[in-house]
């Protein structure tokens, strides 16, 4: 197969599959009218998704990343501002990586 055609097919297939995953969640919730026991399930998804992204990522780091993570959480709880918490986290990890 010509290289350009193969690239186009690969990109088109990946795009279709990816959009399907983006649309499927809302589609299913709308169709199935999930209620009752599913409500606590759906309501807890945001937290459990974020925890699942974070846990391996934080664990993979070292003391610098762990301290920076703690500082980020503390700053977020104290100031309730995402940009500020981000700035604190980046500053702490940058400084700690220099000295460790």
């Amino acid at each position: 197969m010509a290289e350009a055609a193969a690239t186009a097919l690969a990109v088109a297939g990946m795009a279709a599959v990816t959009y399907a995953t983006r649309a499927a969640g809302l589609f299913l919730v709308n169709r199935l009218r999930l209620a009752g026991r599913w409500e606590p399930f759906l309501q807890s998804i945001p937290g459990t998704v974020l925890v699942s992204i974070l846990a391996p990522a934080v664990l993979a780091g070292g003391p610098a990343e762990w301290l920076a993570a703690a500082a980020t959480v503390a700053a977020s709880l104290r100031f309730r501002s995402l940009p500020l918490a981000l700035a604190v986290g980046l500053a702490v990890v940058w400084v700690l990586r220099r000295i460790t």
Binding site: T18, T21, R22, A23, A24, G25, L26, F27, L28, V29, N30, L34, L42, I45, P46, V49
Partner: peptide, 9 residues
């Protein structure tokens, strides 16, 4: 993404 989309429902 399926779970994330469902949470926006």
């Amino acid at each position: 993404h399926v779970l994330m989309g469902a949470a926006l429902g």
